[in-house]
Lab assay of single mutants.
Amino acid sequence: KFNKELSVAGREIVTLPNLNDPQKKAFIFSLWDDPSQSANLLAEAKKLNDAQAPK
């Protein structure tokens, strides 16, 4: 279960257009550290992506 959630969340995070590479890497490392938090980490990444969207 975690492997699928981890890969789905990881793929989504790397495609978020408004995150820079260090931010993406930080989220990916957090996913590896605790795969059970993949849904929460993906939600946080999406929030940050939205907040950094060009206005």
Rank of each mutant, 00 (worst) to 15 (best):
K1E: 14
K1D: 09
K1W: 15
N3Q: 10
K4Y: 13
K4R: 13
K4E: 13
L6Y: 05
L6I: 11
L6E: 04
L6A: 13
S7Q: 11
V8Y: 11
A9H: 06
A9R: 05
G10N: 08
G10E: 15
G10H: 15
R11C: 15
E12I: 14
E12S: 03
I13M: 03
I13D: 01
I13F: 02
I13L: 04
I13V: 04
I13T: 01
V14F: 12
V14H: 08
V14W: 15
T15N: 15
T15Q: 14
T15W: 10
L16M: 11
P17H: 04
P17D: 04
P17N: 05
P17T: 08
N18L: 01
N18K: 01
L19H: 00
L19D: 01
N20W: 05
N20S: 15
D21S: 08
D21A: 11
D21M: 12
P22I: 14
Q23V: 03
K24I: 08
K24D: 00
K24Q: 01
K25M: 14
A26S: 08
F27S: 00
I28G: 01
I28T: 02
I28A: 00
I28C: 06
F29W: 12
S30H: 13
S30L: 15
W32E: 05
W32V: 07
D33I: 11
D33V: 12
D33Q: 14
D33N: 13
D34S: 05
D34N: 11
P35M: 05
P35C: 03
S36E: 09
S38P: 01
S38Y: 14
S38A: 15
N40I: 11
L41R: 02
L41V: 13
L42I: 10
L42R: 03
L42Q: 03
L42P: 00
L42C: 03
A43H: 06
A43G: 04
A43E: 10
E44T: 06
E44Y: 10
E44I: 11
A45L: 02
K46V: 07
K46I: 10
K46G: 02
K46N: 09
K47N: 05
K47Y: 05
L48A: 04
L48Y: 03
L48E: 03
N49C: 02
N49Q: 00
D50L: 10
D50M: 09
D50G: 06
D50K: 07
D50Q: 10
A51I: 12
A51T: 07
A51E: 11
Q52A: 05
A53E: 10
K55W: 08
K55G: 12
K55P: 14
K55L: 15
